[in-house]
Design a binder for these strands. Structure first.
Length: 569
RNA sequence: CGGGGUGUGGCGCAGCCUGGUAGCGCGUCUGGUUUGGGACCAGGAUGUCGGAGGUUCGAAUCCUCUCACCCCGACCA
Protein backbone atom coordinates (compact mmCIF):
# COMPACT_ATOMS: atom_id res chain seq x y z
CA UNK A 1 0.00 0.00 0.00
CA UNK A 2 1.34 3.37 -0.99
CA UNK A 3 0.99 6.13 1.57
CA UNK A 4 0.14 8.54 -1.24
CA UNK A 5 -3.02 6.52 -1.82
CA UNK A 6 -3.74 5.77 1.80
CA UNK A 7 -5.07 8.02 4.54
CA UNK A 8 -2.49 8.95 7.13
CA UNK A 9 -3.56 12.00 9.11
CA UNK A 10 -1.12 11.88 11.98
CA UNK A 11 -1.10 14.55 14.65
CA UNK A 12 1.95 16.04 16.30
CA UNK A 13 -0.09 17.03 19.29
CA UNK A 14 -2.84 14.96 20.85
CA UNK A 15 -6.25 16.57 21.38
CA UNK A 16 -6.62 17.88 24.92
CA UNK A 17 -9.47 15.47 25.63
CA UNK A 18 -7.13 12.50 25.75
CA UNK A 19 -5.19 11.68 28.86
CA UNK A 20 -4.35 7.99 28.66
CA UNK A 21 -1.32 7.06 26.52
CA UNK A 22 -3.27 4.62 24.40
CA UNK A 23 -6.03 7.15 23.78
CA UNK A 24 -3.54 9.86 22.81
CA UNK A 25 -1.63 7.57 20.50
CA UNK A 26 -4.78 6.24 18.89
CA UNK A 27 -5.82 9.79 18.08
CA UNK A 28 -2.35 10.90 16.97
CA UNK A 29 -1.89 7.87 14.73
CA UNK A 30 -5.38 8.43 13.29
CA UNK A 31 -6.69 5.02 14.35
CA UNK A 32 -9.89 6.51 15.70
CA UNK A 33 -11.83 9.75 15.69
CA UNK A 34 -14.43 10.78 18.24
CA UNK A 35 -18.02 11.43 17.23
CA UNK A 36 -19.52 12.02 20.67
CA UNK A 37 -18.98 10.93 24.25
CA UNK A 38 -18.05 7.23 24.12
CA UNK A 39 -18.63 7.03 20.36
CA UNK A 40 -15.73 6.47 17.97
CA UNK A 41 -15.16 6.02 14.27
CA UNK A 42 -12.50 3.47 13.39
CA UNK A 43 -10.38 5.04 10.67
CA UNK A 44 -8.75 2.89 7.96
CA UNK A 45 -5.55 2.24 9.88
CA UNK A 46 -7.38 1.49 13.13
CA UNK A 47 -9.85 -0.79 11.44
CA UNK A 48 -7.01 -2.89 10.05
CA UNK A 49 -5.85 -3.45 13.63
CA UNK A 50 -9.35 -4.28 14.80
CA UNK A 51 -9.72 -6.83 12.01
CA UNK A 52 -6.41 -8.43 13.01
CA UNK A 53 -7.67 -8.91 16.55
CA UNK A 54 -10.96 -10.30 15.27
CA UNK A 55 -9.13 -12.74 13.02
CA UNK A 56 -7.13 -14.20 15.90
CA UNK A 57 -10.28 -14.46 18.00
CA UNK A 58 -12.19 -16.20 15.19
CA UNK A 59 -9.41 -18.68 14.58
CA UNK A 60 -9.20 -19.68 18.22
CA UNK A 61 -12.95 -19.73 18.77
CA UNK A 62 -13.43 -21.91 15.70
CA UNK A 63 -10.58 -24.16 16.82
CA UNK A 64 -12.32 -24.52 20.18
CA UNK A 65 -15.42 -25.75 18.41
CA UNK A 66 -17.54 -22.61 18.76
CA UNK A 67 -19.87 -21.69 15.88
CA UNK A 68 -20.18 -18.14 14.63
CA UNK A 69 -23.61 -16.53 14.42
CA UNK A 70 -24.76 -12.95 14.11
CA UNK A 71 -27.61 -11.67 16.25
CA UNK A 72 -29.54 -8.40 15.99
CA UNK A 73 -28.18 -5.44 17.87
CA UNK A 74 -31.71 -4.21 18.52
CA UNK A 75 -33.72 -6.44 20.81
CA UNK A 76 -37.37 -6.50 21.87
CA UNK A 77 -38.15 -5.63 25.50
CA UNK A 78 -40.23 -8.79 26.00
CA UNK A 79 -37.15 -10.99 26.16
CA UNK A 80 -35.60 -8.78 28.80
CA UNK A 81 -38.79 -8.70 30.81
CA UNK A 82 -38.77 -12.50 30.87
CA UNK A 83 -35.46 -12.56 32.72
CA UNK A 84 -36.29 -9.48 34.76
CA UNK A 85 -33.27 -7.66 33.41
CA UNK A 86 -35.35 -4.96 31.69
CA UNK A 87 -35.46 -3.41 35.16
CA UNK A 88 -32.12 -4.66 36.48
CA UNK A 89 -30.08 -2.97 33.77
CA UNK A 90 -31.59 0.42 34.46
CA UNK A 91 -30.17 3.45 32.69
CA UNK A 92 -27.16 1.46 31.44
CA UNK A 93 -29.44 0.14 28.73
CA UNK A 94 -30.28 2.35 25.77
CA UNK A 95 -34.02 2.00 25.21
CA UNK A 96 -36.12 3.03 22.26
CA UNK A 97 -39.56 2.59 20.77
CA UNK A 98 -40.50 1.62 17.26
CA UNK A 99 -43.33 3.19 15.26
CA UNK A 100 -45.85 1.00 17.05
CA UNK A 101 -44.64 2.30 20.42
CA UNK A 102 -43.17 -1.11 21.24
CA UNK A 103 -40.14 -1.11 23.54
CA UNK A 104 -36.72 -2.13 22.30
CA UNK A 105 -33.19 -1.79 23.49
CA UNK A 106 -29.85 -1.61 21.76
CA UNK A 107 -28.36 -4.82 23.12
CA UNK A 108 -25.84 -4.35 25.92
CA UNK A 109 -25.29 -8.14 25.81
CA UNK A 110 -27.04 -11.11 24.22
CA UNK A 111 -27.92 -13.76 26.84
CA UNK A 112 -31.64 -13.26 26.24
CA UNK A 113 -31.43 -13.50 22.46
CA UNK A 114 -29.23 -16.58 22.44
CA UNK A 115 -31.35 -18.29 25.10
CA UNK A 116 -34.38 -17.63 22.95
CA UNK A 117 -32.60 -19.30 20.05
CA UNK A 118 -31.63 -22.20 22.28
CA UNK A 119 -35.14 -22.84 23.59
CA UNK A 120 -36.52 -22.84 20.05
CA UNK A 121 -33.79 -24.83 18.36
CA UNK A 122 -32.33 -27.22 20.91
CA UNK A 123 -34.57 -30.23 21.38
CA UNK A 124 -32.31 -33.12 22.25
CA UNK A 125 -29.20 -33.93 24.26
CA UNK A 126 -27.86 -35.19 20.93
CA UNK A 127 -27.45 -31.57 19.84
CA UNK A 128 -25.27 -30.82 22.86
CA UNK A 129 -22.87 -29.46 23.69
CA UNK A 130 -22.99 -26.45 21.43
CA UNK A 131 -21.33 -23.04 21.62
CA UNK A 132 -22.46 -20.03 19.58
CA UNK A 133 -20.43 -16.86 19.28
CA UNK A 134 -20.57 -13.56 17.47
CA UNK A 135 -18.53 -10.40 17.10
CA UNK A 136 -21.01 -7.60 17.50
CA UNK A 137 -21.51 -3.99 18.40
CA UNK A 138 -22.86 -3.48 21.89
CA UNK A 139 -24.16 -0.33 23.46
CA UNK A 140 -23.96 0.39 27.16
CA UNK A 141 -24.86 3.86 28.31
CA UNK A 142 -21.95 4.03 30.74
CA UNK A 143 -22.16 6.47 33.61
CA UNK A 144 -18.86 7.91 32.59
CA UNK A 145 -17.34 6.91 29.27
CA UNK A 146 -13.61 7.59 29.28
CA UNK A 147 -10.19 6.74 27.92
CA UNK A 148 -11.33 6.59 24.30
CA UNK A 149 -12.33 3.12 23.19
CA UNK A 150 -11.19 1.68 26.53
CA UNK A 151 -14.53 2.52 28.09
CA UNK A 152 -16.72 3.58 25.23
CA UNK A 153 -20.49 3.40 25.12
CA UNK A 154 -20.59 1.71 21.75
CA UNK A 155 -17.97 -1.00 21.41
CA UNK A 156 -17.24 -4.27 19.68
CA UNK A 157 -17.47 -7.43 21.71
CA UNK A 158 -16.95 -11.06 20.96
CA UNK A 159 -19.58 -12.88 22.98
CA UNK A 160 -19.96 -16.65 23.13
CA UNK A 161 -22.61 -18.78 24.80
CA UNK A 162 -22.26 -22.47 25.58
CA UNK A 163 -25.08 -24.92 26.16
CA UNK A 164 -24.52 -28.22 27.91
CA UNK A 165 -26.57 -31.12 29.15
CA UNK A 166 -25.23 -31.00 32.69
CA UNK A 167 -22.78 -29.52 35.18
CA UNK A 168 -19.92 -31.71 34.02
CA UNK A 169 -20.44 -30.61 30.46
CA UNK A 170 -20.61 -26.97 31.51
CA UNK A 171 -17.33 -27.31 33.39
CA UNK A 172 -15.72 -28.74 30.26
CA UNK A 173 -17.14 -26.00 28.02
CA UNK A 174 -15.98 -23.37 30.50
CA UNK A 175 -12.52 -24.87 30.56
CA UNK A 176 -12.39 -24.96 26.77
CA UNK A 177 -13.21 -21.25 26.59
CA UNK A 178 -10.79 -20.42 29.38
CA UNK A 179 -8.03 -22.17 27.45
CA UNK A 180 -9.07 -20.53 24.17
CA UNK A 181 -8.91 -17.11 25.83
CA UNK A 182 -5.44 -17.81 27.16
CA UNK A 183 -4.35 -18.76 23.63
CA UNK A 184 -5.96 -15.67 22.10
CA UNK A 185 -4.26 -13.20 24.42
CA UNK A 186 -0.97 -15.05 24.20
CA UNK A 187 -1.07 -14.98 20.41
CA UNK A 188 -1.87 -11.26 20.49
CA UNK A 189 1.34 -10.74 22.42
CA UNK A 190 -0.28 -9.37 25.59
CA UNK A 191 0.98 -9.79 29.14
CA UNK A 192 -2.13 -10.88 30.99
CA UNK A 193 -3.37 -12.82 33.95
CA UNK A 194 -6.57 -14.79 34.45
CA UNK A 195 -8.09 -13.94 37.81
CA UNK A 196 -11.05 -15.21 39.82
CA UNK A 197 -13.84 -12.66 39.65
CA UNK A 198 -17.18 -11.58 40.97
CA UNK A 199 -20.10 -12.56 38.77
CA UNK A 200 -21.85 -9.18 39.00
CA UNK A 201 -24.96 -8.39 36.98
CA UNK A 202 -24.48 -11.28 34.55
CA UNK A 203 -24.92 -13.78 37.36
CA UNK A 204 -23.84 -17.40 37.69
CA UNK A 205 -21.46 -19.47 39.75
CA UNK A 206 -17.85 -19.42 38.52
CA UNK A 207 -16.12 -16.61 36.76
CA UNK A 208 -12.68 -15.51 35.63
CA UNK A 209 -11.50 -12.24 34.20
CA UNK A 210 -8.62 -11.92 31.78
CA UNK A 211 -6.68 -8.86 32.82
CA UNK A 212 -4.01 -7.18 30.76
CA UNK A 213 -1.44 -5.95 33.23
CA UNK A 214 -1.06 -2.16 33.02
CA UNK A 215 -0.63 0.56 35.63
CA UNK A 216 -3.42 2.56 34.03
CA UNK A 217 -5.86 -0.33 34.46
CA UNK A 218 -9.15 0.39 36.19
CA UNK A 219 -9.15 -2.91 38.07
CA UNK A 220 -7.01 -3.94 40.99
CA UNK A 221 -5.98 -7.55 41.03
CA UNK A 222 -4.46 -9.52 43.86
CA UNK A 223 -2.06 -12.30 43.09
CA UNK A 224 0.38 -14.50 44.89
CA UNK A 225 3.81 -14.65 43.22
CA UNK A 226 4.64 -17.94 44.91
CA UNK A 227 1.47 -19.77 43.91
CA UNK A 228 -1.12 -19.59 41.15
CA UNK A 229 -3.64 -17.67 43.23
CA UNK A 230 -5.02 -14.59 41.45
CA UNK A 231 -8.30 -12.76 41.98
CA UNK A 232 -9.90 -9.43 41.39
CA UNK A 233 -9.54 -7.35 44.56
CA UNK A 234 -13.35 -7.16 44.58
CA UNK A 235 -13.34 -10.87 45.29
CA UNK A 236 -9.96 -11.67 46.89
CA UNK A 237 -10.50 -12.95 50.40
CA UNK A 238 -8.88 -11.14 53.29
CA UNK A 239 -7.95 -13.76 55.87
CA UNK A 240 -8.90 -13.18 59.49
CA UNK A 241 -5.89 -12.45 61.71
CA UNK A 242 -4.68 -15.72 63.24
CA UNK A 243 -3.91 -14.28 66.68
CA UNK A 244 -6.81 -13.79 69.14
CA UNK A 245 -7.64 -10.32 70.35
CA UNK A 246 -5.39 -9.04 73.16
CA UNK A 247 -6.96 -7.85 76.39
CA UNK A 248 -7.44 -4.16 77.13
CA UNK A 249 -4.21 -2.54 78.29
CA UNK A 250 -5.23 1.09 78.29
CA UNK A 251 -8.01 3.15 79.76
CA UNK A 252 -10.60 4.77 77.52
CA UNK A 253 -9.59 8.34 76.81
CA UNK A 254 -11.18 11.20 74.89
CA UNK A 255 -8.63 13.11 72.83
CA UNK A 256 -8.92 16.52 71.15
CA UNK A 257 -8.41 16.15 67.41
CA UNK A 258 -9.63 19.36 65.81
CA UNK A 259 -9.84 19.32 62.03
CA UNK A 260 -8.59 15.73 61.85
CA UNK A 261 -11.33 13.95 59.97
CA UNK A 262 -9.17 11.34 58.26
CA UNK A 263 -7.57 8.39 59.99
CA UNK A 264 -4.18 9.35 58.56
CA UNK A 265 -4.37 12.77 60.22
CA UNK A 266 -5.57 11.41 63.54
CA UNK A 267 -2.83 8.76 63.59
CA UNK A 268 -0.21 11.39 62.76
CA UNK A 269 -1.47 13.77 65.47
CA UNK A 270 -1.52 11.10 68.14
CA UNK A 271 1.70 9.50 66.98
CA UNK A 272 0.16 6.04 66.68
CA UNK A 273 0.28 3.60 63.72
CA UNK A 274 -2.51 4.00 61.17
CA UNK A 275 -3.31 0.34 61.76
CA UNK A 276 -4.36 1.11 65.33
CA UNK A 277 -7.16 3.41 64.17
CA UNK A 278 -10.67 2.37 63.18
CA UNK A 279 -12.91 4.15 60.70
CA UNK A 280 -16.67 3.87 60.73
CA UNK A 281 -18.51 4.04 57.42
CA UNK A 282 -22.20 4.81 57.68
CA UNK A 283 -24.40 3.03 55.15
CA UNK A 284 -28.14 2.70 54.76
CA UNK A 285 -30.38 -0.20 53.81
CA UNK A 286 -34.16 0.32 53.85
CA UNK A 287 -33.77 3.41 56.07
CA UNK A 288 -31.78 1.38 58.63
CA UNK A 289 -28.37 2.80 59.44
CA UNK A 290 -25.37 0.51 59.69
CA UNK A 291 -21.82 1.28 60.74
CA UNK A 292 -19.13 -0.65 58.93
CA UNK A 293 -15.87 -0.73 60.87
CA UNK A 294 -12.55 -0.94 59.10
CA UNK A 295 -8.97 -0.49 60.15
CA UNK A 296 -7.64 2.96 59.26
CA UNK A 297 -5.27 1.54 56.66
CA UNK A 298 -7.94 -0.60 54.97
CA UNK A 299 -10.55 0.22 52.33
CA UNK A 300 -14.18 -0.91 52.22
CA UNK A 301 -15.00 -3.62 49.70
CA UNK A 302 -18.55 -2.87 48.63
CA UNK A 303 -19.07 -6.20 46.93
CA UNK A 304 -18.22 -8.04 50.12
CA UNK A 305 -20.21 -5.65 52.32
CA UNK A 306 -23.32 -6.18 50.22
CA UNK A 307 -23.12 -9.85 51.15
CA UNK A 308 -23.67 -9.09 54.85
CA UNK A 309 -27.04 -10.59 55.84
CA UNK A 310 -29.77 -8.01 55.36
CA UNK A 311 -27.58 -5.25 53.94
CA UNK A 312 -28.16 -5.73 50.24
CA UNK A 313 -28.62 -3.33 48.57
CA UNK A 314 -26.98 -0.54 50.52
CA UNK A 315 -25.92 3.01 49.84
CA UNK A 316 -23.70 5.43 51.66
CA UNK A 317 -25.49 7.56 54.26
CA UNK A 318 -25.82 11.24 53.49
CA UNK A 319 -24.35 13.83 55.81
CA UNK A 320 -27.86 14.77 56.92
CA UNK A 321 -28.66 11.18 57.88
CA UNK A 322 -25.41 10.85 59.79
CA UNK A 323 -26.00 14.03 61.75
CA UNK A 324 -29.57 12.99 62.53
CA UNK A 325 -28.71 9.50 63.82
CA UNK A 326 -25.34 10.14 65.45
CA UNK A 327 -25.62 13.84 66.31
CA UNK A 328 -22.21 14.32 64.81
CA UNK A 329 -20.66 15.31 61.52
CA UNK A 330 -18.84 12.74 59.37
CA UNK A 331 -15.17 12.51 60.23
CA UNK A 332 -15.68 12.01 63.93
CA UNK A 333 -18.23 9.22 64.01
CA UNK A 334 -17.57 5.96 65.82
CA UNK A 335 -19.28 2.88 67.27
CA UNK A 336 -19.09 3.82 70.97
CA UNK A 337 -22.21 4.85 72.86
CA UNK A 338 -24.57 4.91 69.93
CA UNK A 339 -28.21 3.89 69.51
CA UNK A 340 -28.24 0.06 69.93
CA UNK A 341 -30.58 -0.15 66.94
CA UNK A 342 -27.71 0.80 64.66
CA UNK A 343 -26.21 -2.40 63.29
CA UNK A 344 -22.47 -2.72 63.56
CA UNK A 345 -20.43 -4.86 61.22
CA UNK A 346 -16.71 -5.11 61.87
CA UNK A 347 -14.10 -6.39 59.55
CA UNK A 348 -12.17 -9.39 60.87
CA UNK A 349 -9.12 -7.21 61.37
CA UNK A 350 -11.07 -4.72 63.50
CA UNK A 351 -12.65 -7.45 65.60
CA UNK A 352 -9.14 -8.56 66.54
CA UNK A 353 -8.05 -5.10 67.71
CA UNK A 354 -7.60 -3.87 71.27
CA UNK A 355 -6.91 -0.35 72.54
CA UNK A 356 -7.84 1.26 69.23
CA UNK A 357 -8.61 4.81 68.21
CA UNK A 358 -11.97 5.80 66.73
CA UNK A 359 -14.32 8.73 66.37
CA UNK A 360 -16.03 10.01 69.53
CA UNK A 361 -19.29 11.08 67.87
CA UNK A 362 -18.40 14.61 68.86
CA UNK A 363 -16.94 17.10 66.47
CA UNK A 364 -13.22 17.60 67.08
CA UNK A 365 -12.77 14.53 69.29
CA UNK A 366 -11.68 10.94 68.96
CA UNK A 367 -11.47 8.15 71.51
CA UNK A 368 -8.28 6.23 72.29
CA UNK A 369 -7.82 2.98 74.18
CA UNK A 370 -11.16 1.65 72.92
CA UNK A 371 -11.96 -2.02 73.53
CA UNK A 372 -14.85 -4.24 72.50
CA UNK A 373 -16.67 -5.82 75.41
CA UNK A 374 -15.58 -3.06 77.78
CA UNK A 375 -16.34 0.25 76.05
CA UNK A 376 -18.85 -0.98 73.51
CA UNK A 377 -20.70 -4.22 72.79
CA UNK A 378 -19.27 -6.85 70.49
CA UNK A 379 -20.22 -6.07 66.87
CA UNK A 380 -23.38 -7.64 65.46
CA UNK A 381 -21.43 -9.03 62.54
CA UNK A 382 -17.78 -9.87 62.02
CA UNK A 383 -16.97 -10.50 58.38
CA UNK A 384 -14.53 -9.90 55.59
CA UNK A 385 -15.60 -6.52 54.23
CA UNK A 386 -12.29 -4.98 53.20
CA UNK A 387 -10.06 -4.96 50.16
CA UNK A 388 -6.96 -7.06 50.49
CA UNK A 389 -3.72 -5.10 50.52
CA UNK A 390 -0.21 -6.00 49.46
CA UNK A 391 1.37 -8.13 52.14
CA UNK A 392 -1.85 -9.89 53.18
CA UNK A 393 -1.54 -13.67 53.37
CA UNK A 394 -2.69 -15.46 50.23
CA UNK A 395 -6.00 -17.30 50.79
CA UNK A 396 -4.40 -20.48 49.50
CA UNK A 397 -1.90 -20.31 52.34
CA UNK A 398 1.05 -20.40 49.98
CA UNK A 399 2.54 -16.97 50.35
CA UNK A 400 1.82 -13.28 50.45
CA UNK A 401 -0.36 -11.22 48.11
CA UNK A 402 0.77 -8.51 45.76
CA UNK A 403 -1.51 -6.01 44.03
CA UNK A 404 -1.32 -5.04 40.36
CA UNK A 405 -3.49 -2.98 38.04
CA UNK A 406 -5.24 -4.60 35.14
CA UNK A 407 -7.44 -3.87 32.12
CA UNK A 408 -10.25 -6.38 31.83
CA UNK A 409 -10.24 -7.60 28.24
CA UNK A 410 -12.10 -10.86 28.72
CA UNK A 411 -14.51 -12.46 31.13
CA UNK A 412 -15.80 -16.01 31.31
CA UNK A 413 -18.86 -17.02 33.35
CA UNK A 414 -20.35 -20.37 34.22
CA UNK A 415 -23.96 -19.25 34.29
CA UNK A 416 -25.68 -22.53 35.09
CA UNK A 417 -29.44 -22.43 34.60
CA UNK A 418 -30.12 -18.80 35.48
CA UNK A 419 -31.32 -17.87 32.00
CA UNK A 420 -32.58 -21.24 30.82
CA UNK A 421 -34.82 -21.36 33.88
CA UNK A 422 -36.12 -17.81 33.47
CA UNK A 423 -36.83 -18.41 29.80
CA UNK A 424 -37.76 -22.09 29.85
CA UNK A 425 -34.88 -23.38 27.73
CA UNK A 426 -35.01 -27.16 28.02
CA UNK A 427 -33.86 -30.24 26.14
CA UNK A 428 -34.80 -33.89 26.34
CA UNK A 429 -32.24 -36.13 28.02
CA UNK A 430 -31.47 -39.81 27.29
CA UNK A 431 -34.57 -40.82 29.25
CA UNK A 432 -36.73 -38.44 27.26
CA UNK A 433 -37.11 -36.19 30.29
CA UNK A 434 -36.96 -32.37 29.94
CA UNK A 435 -33.91 -30.79 31.59
CA UNK A 436 -32.72 -27.20 31.83
CA UNK A 437 -29.80 -26.26 29.64
CA UNK A 438 -26.57 -25.47 31.48
CA UNK A 439 -25.18 -22.24 30.11
CA UNK A 440 -21.89 -20.41 30.08
CA UNK A 441 -21.10 -17.03 28.58
CA UNK A 442 -17.78 -15.64 27.48
CA UNK A 443 -16.88 -12.11 26.42
CA UNK A 444 -13.91 -10.35 24.91
CA UNK A 445 -13.82 -6.58 24.50
CA UNK A 446 -12.44 -6.51 20.98
CA UNK A 447 -12.07 -2.73 20.72
CA UNK A 448 -10.69 -2.59 24.23
CA UNK A 449 -8.04 -5.18 23.37
CA UNK A 450 -6.60 -2.71 20.86
CA UNK A 451 -6.34 0.05 23.45
CA UNK A 452 -4.95 -2.34 26.06
CA UNK A 453 -2.28 -3.53 23.65
CA UNK A 454 -1.11 0.03 23.07
CA UNK A 455 -1.20 0.74 26.77
CA UNK A 456 1.24 -2.11 27.19
CA UNK A 457 3.33 -1.53 24.07
CA UNK A 458 4.46 2.03 23.43
CA UNK A 459 7.48 4.27 23.75
CA UNK A 460 8.30 7.95 23.40
CA UNK A 461 7.94 7.72 19.64
CA UNK A 462 4.60 6.02 19.52
CA UNK A 463 2.94 2.66 19.29
CA UNK A 464 4.96 -0.57 19.20
CA UNK A 465 2.52 -3.13 17.83
CA UNK A 466 2.84 -6.79 18.65
CA UNK A 467 3.22 -8.25 15.14
CA UNK A 468 -0.14 -10.09 15.09
CA UNK A 469 -1.98 -6.79 15.59
CA UNK A 470 0.09 -4.50 13.40
CA UNK A 471 -1.90 -2.85 10.60
CA UNK A 472 1.08 -3.42 8.28
CA UNK A 473 4.12 -5.54 8.94
CA UNK A 474 6.73 -3.52 7.07
CA UNK A 475 7.28 0.20 6.62
CA UNK A 476 9.20 0.73 3.39
CA UNK A 477 10.83 4.15 3.49
CA UNK A 478 12.72 5.39 0.44
CA UNK A 479 15.02 8.37 0.98
CA UNK A 480 15.01 10.57 -2.13
CA UNK A 481 12.28 8.69 -3.97
CA UNK A 482 11.31 11.79 -5.89
CA UNK A 483 14.72 12.81 -7.11
CA UNK A 484 16.75 9.64 -7.50
CA UNK A 485 15.88 7.23 -10.29
CA UNK A 486 17.95 4.50 -8.63
CA UNK A 487 16.15 4.86 -5.33
CA UNK A 488 12.81 4.89 -7.09
CA UNK A 489 13.58 1.77 -9.10
CA UNK A 490 14.98 -0.13 -6.13
CA UNK A 491 12.16 0.87 -3.79
CA UNK A 492 9.46 0.09 -6.36
CA UNK A 493 11.00 -3.30 -6.97
CA UNK A 494 11.29 -4.16 -3.30
CA UNK A 495 7.72 -2.99 -2.75
CA UNK A 496 6.50 -5.24 -5.53
CA UNK A 497 8.44 -8.24 -4.23
CA UNK A 498 7.20 -7.76 -0.70
CA UNK A 499 3.60 -7.57 -1.85
CA UNK A 500 4.08 -10.62 -4.05
CA UNK A 501 5.42 -12.45 -1.03
CA UNK A 502 2.20 -11.53 0.78
CA UNK A 503 3.88 -9.11 3.20
CA UNK A 504 1.61 -6.25 4.25
CA UNK A 505 3.79 -3.30 3.40
CA UNK A 506 3.18 0.41 3.86
CA UNK A 507 5.30 2.11 1.22
CA UNK A 508 6.00 5.75 2.10
CA UNK A 509 6.21 7.26 -1.36
CA UNK A 510 5.40 10.80 -0.19
CA UNK A 511 7.67 13.65 -1.16
CA UNK A 512 8.59 14.25 2.47
CA UNK A 513 11.86 14.67 4.26
CA UNK A 514 13.13 11.43 5.82
CA UNK A 515 12.55 12.65 9.37
CA UNK A 516 8.85 13.10 8.72
CA UNK A 517 8.50 9.62 7.27
CA UNK A 518 10.49 7.97 10.06
CA UNK A 519 8.46 9.77 12.70
CA UNK A 520 5.14 8.75 11.13
CA UNK A 521 6.11 5.11 10.68
CA UNK A 522 7.27 4.96 14.29
CA UNK A 523 4.15 6.69 15.57
CA UNK A 524 1.87 4.18 13.88
CA UNK A 525 4.07 1.43 15.28
CA UNK A 526 4.87 -0.85 12.35
CA UNK A 527 7.12 -3.66 13.59
CA UNK A 528 9.67 -3.61 10.75
CA UNK A 529 11.22 -0.79 8.74
CA UNK A 530 13.23 -0.99 5.55
CA UNK A 531 15.06 2.07 4.25
CA UNK A 532 16.17 2.38 0.62
CA UNK A 533 18.56 5.26 -0.04
CA UNK A 534 21.09 6.43 -2.56
CA UNK A 535 23.77 6.11 0.07
CA UNK A 536 22.85 2.51 0.77
CA UNK A 537 22.44 1.54 -2.86
CA UNK A 538 25.99 2.71 -3.62
CA UNK A 539 27.17 0.02 -1.21
CA UNK A 540 24.61 -2.38 -2.67
CA UNK A 541 22.62 -2.43 0.56
CA UNK A 542 19.29 -1.56 2.11
CA UNK A 543 18.68 -0.95 5.78
CA UNK A 544 16.54 -2.94 8.17
CA UNK A 545 15.46 -1.88 11.65
CA UNK A 546 12.92 -3.48 13.97
CA UNK A 547 10.63 -1.08 15.83
CA UNK A 548 12.25 -2.02 19.13
CA UNK A 549 15.81 -2.12 17.80
CA UNK A 550 18.28 0.54 18.88
CA UNK A 551 20.01 0.72 15.52
CA UNK A 552 19.71 -0.38 11.91
CA UNK A 553 21.27 -3.33 10.18
CA UNK A 554 22.57 -3.27 6.61
CA UNK A 555 21.37 -6.00 4.29
CA UNK A 556 22.94 -6.81 0.91
CA UNK A 557 20.37 -5.76 -1.67
CA UNK A 558 20.23 -9.17 -3.32
CA UNK A 559 19.41 -10.86 -0.04
CA UNK A 560 17.13 -8.15 1.30
CA UNK A 561 13.83 -9.84 0.55
CA UNK A 562 14.88 -13.17 2.01
CA UNK A 563 16.35 -11.54 5.10
CA UNK A 564 13.22 -9.45 5.68
CA UNK A 565 10.99 -12.49 5.26
CA UNK A 566 13.14 -14.30 7.81
CA UNK A 567 12.54 -11.45 10.26
CA UNK A 568 8.81 -11.73 9.81
CA UNK A 569 9.01 -15.33 10.95
C1' C B 1 -25.83 11.77 39.58
C1' G B 2 -22.33 14.50 42.98
C1' G B 3 -17.53 17.27 42.85
C1' G B 4 -13.81 19.96 39.65
C1' G B 5 -12.69 22.07 34.86
C1' U B 6 -12.84 23.48 29.54
C1' G B 7 -15.35 25.33 25.03
C1' U B 8 -11.70 30.85 20.38
C1' G B 9 -9.72 28.25 12.16
C1' G B 10 -8.14 20.89 11.44
C1' C B 11 -4.74 20.24 16.29
C1' G B 12 -2.36 22.83 20.59
C1' C B 13 -3.10 27.50 22.86
C1' A B 14 -3.14 33.27 24.03
C1' G B 15 -6.71 37.21 24.38
C1' C B 16 -11.45 37.58 28.93
C1' C B 17 -9.70 40.11 35.06
C1' U B 18 -9.59 46.07 33.18
C1' G B 19 -15.58 45.68 26.76
C1' G B 20 -13.32 49.06 21.29
C1' U B 21 -14.58 44.53 16.28
C1' A B 22 -9.50 38.26 16.86
C1' G B 23 -3.97 36.57 17.47
C1' C B 24 0.34 32.84 18.02
C1' G B 25 2.59 27.83 17.07
C1' C B 26 1.65 23.39 14.31
C1' G B 27 -0.99 21.62 10.15
C1' U B 28 -2.95 22.98 5.22
C1' C B 29 -2.53 25.47 -0.03
C1' U B 30 0.98 28.09 -3.84
C1' G B 31 6.05 29.25 -5.35
C1' G B 32 11.17 28.75 -4.34
C1' U B 33 15.43 26.74 -1.68
C1' U B 34 16.42 22.15 0.85
C1' U B 35 16.62 16.46 1.48
C1' G B 36 19.16 10.44 6.67
C1' G B 37 15.36 12.25 12.12
C1' G B 38 8.97 16.09 12.49
C1' A B 39 13.53 21.94 7.31
C1' C B 40 13.80 27.25 5.63
C1' C B 41 11.96 31.74 3.00
C1' A B 42 7.85 34.29 0.73
C1' G B 43 2.75 34.52 -0.12
C1' G B 44 -2.39 32.62 0.64
C1' A B 45 -6.90 30.13 2.68
C1' U B 46 -9.62 28.70 6.86
C1' G B 47 -13.29 31.76 12.78
C1' U B 48 -21.41 33.10 13.00
C1' C B 49 -15.11 33.14 19.58
C1' G B 50 -20.31 26.14 21.74
C1' G B 51 -25.69 28.08 21.57
C1' A B 52 -29.74 31.47 23.17
C1' G B 53 -31.13 35.75 25.65
C1' G B 54 -29.68 40.23 28.21
C1' U B 55 -26.60 44.80 29.66
C1' U B 56 -24.05 48.48 26.49
C1' C B 57 -23.01 53.35 21.47
C1' G B 58 -20.11 48.81 21.21
C1' A B 59 -19.49 41.91 23.88
C1' A B 60 -14.77 36.51 22.63
C1' U B 61 -14.55 39.73 27.11
C1' C B 62 -19.83 41.53 31.81
C1' C B 63 -24.82 38.97 33.45
C1' U B 64 -28.61 34.87 32.95
C1' C B 65 -29.99 30.40 30.91
C1' U B 66 -28.56 26.32 28.03
C1' C B 67 -25.65 22.60 25.33
C1' A B 68 -21.30 19.81 24.61
C1' C B 69 -16.84 17.82 26.20
C1' C B 70 -12.90 16.45 29.76
C1' C B 71 -11.08 14.99 34.79
C1' C B 72 -12.16 12.56 40.07
C1' G B 73 -15.97 8.85 42.53
C1' A B 74 -20.34 4.37 42.07
C1' C B 75 -20.72 0.48 36.32
C1' C B 76 -18.26 -3.22 33.03
C1' A B 77 -15.77 -6.18 27.90
Amino acid sequence: MRVSRYFLATLKEAPAEAELVSHRLMLRACLIRRLGSGLYTWMPLGLRVLRKVEAVIREEMNAAGALEVFMPAVQPAELWQETGRWDVFGPLMLRMKDRHERDFCFGPTHEEVITDIARREIRSYRQLPVNFYQIQTKFRDEIRPRFGVMRAREFSMKDAYSFDAGKTGLAASYRRMYDAYARIFTRLGLRFRAVAADTGAIGGSASHEFQVIADSGEDAIAFCPTSDYAANVELAEAMAPPAPRAGPARALEKVFTPGRTRCEDVAALLGVPLASTVKAIAVVHDDALWLLLLRGDHALNEVKASKLPGLEPFRFATETEIVRRLACKPGYIGPVGIDPAIRIAADHSVAAMADFVCGANEEGYHLAGVNFGRDLPEPHFVADIRNVVAGDPSPDGKGVLEIARGIEVGHVFALGTKYSEAMGARFLDEQGQPQLLEMGCYGIGVTRVVAAAIEQNNDARGIVWPAPMAPFQVALVPVGYHKSAEVRAAADELHRKLEEAGVETLFDDRDERPGVMFADMELIGLPHRVVVSERGLKEGRVEYQGRRDASAEKLPRAEALARILARLG
